[in-house]
Nucleic acid binder design. Structure first.
Length: 229
DNA sequence: GTGTGATCATCG
DNA sequence: CGATGATCACAC
């Protein structure tokens, strides 16, 4: 493992450096990483849902903070930790970004945040079974990924279908079952959270904020088909 | 509230 | 038992 201090870690200068850094973490447990960084390990993730992501971000020198940009802004790479089972299959869907529910006239897939976020992603698989104590869960081999032509088409058509629902004022009838590989689900502090959207008459309404998520079938394929690269 | 990091937990 | 809907923490 690279001898990181617990303080600030420089951003990787390029993809190769980032990948090497990520590869150096593979095989270590969360307990080892947390201990090395003098971080306290929570008993579970119930009240620390983003904890693993933040820990890995720190080790890799991610920089975007809570700005709507790729984590490694300078080199245009987004970081995603993804919980996996014994067979390397995802245990959860993957959050991509929040969905703008107003002001979408004229927006195209090419100019969308979903496209922007998913152009280049560094996936870090992490053992995610709840039976494994957090400190014993191990980091897997990273995968530097860009969507291939097929994946791009799947994402684009789902995005267009979902955006049509938003633009046409059908927001309140959206469920997570729309979309083959991409879905819209609540993304909020709780179900009292509110944002603005438009109804089918074009009037402003209040509704729960939604986010785009990648379904497990999609991430499962990309993880398995890129594993041996 | 919005956006980051996500996973929890209930229900069919 | 998995997917959908709900939720947690934090920065600003």
């Amino acid at each position: 493992m690279i001898n990181f201090s617990t303080m600030s870690i420089s951003q990787p200068a390029n993809e190769r450096e980032l990948l090497l850094r990520a590869q150096s973490l593979a095989g270590f447990s969360l307990g080892e990483l947390a201990g090395h960084a003098n971080k306290i390990i929570p008993n579970n993730l119930n009240r620390s849902k983003g904890w693993i992501g933040k820990l890995i971000e720190m080790y890799l020198g991610a920089s975007a903070g809570n700005k709507p940009e790729p984590d490694f802004t300078a080199i245009g790479v987004e970081l995603k930790t993804i919980p996996i089972d014994n067979y390397g299959r995802p245990l959860q869907t993957t959050f991509v970004c929040v969905a703008q529910l107003t002001g979408n006239s004229g927006i195209t897939w090419e100019a969308s945040y979903v496209r922007y976020k998913l152009t280049r992603v560094l996936w870090i698989p992490v053992e995610g079974q709840r039976e494994i104590p957090l400190s014993q869960r191990r980091i897997g081999n990273p995968i530097l990924w860009s969507p291939d032509a097929t994946e791009l088409l799947q994402l684009k058509s789902d995005w267009e279908e979902l955006m049509d629902l938003i633009v046409l004022g059908k927001v309140t009838s959206i469920t997570a079952s729309y979309g083959e590989v991409l879905q819209l689900r609540p993304k909020a502090a709780n179900n009292l959270a509110v944002t603005t959207a438009i109804d089918d008459l074009g009037k402003i309404i209040n509704t729960i904020p939604l986010g785009f998520y990648l379904k497990k079938t999609f991430t499962s394929k990309l993880l398995s088909s890129n594993f041996f690269i």
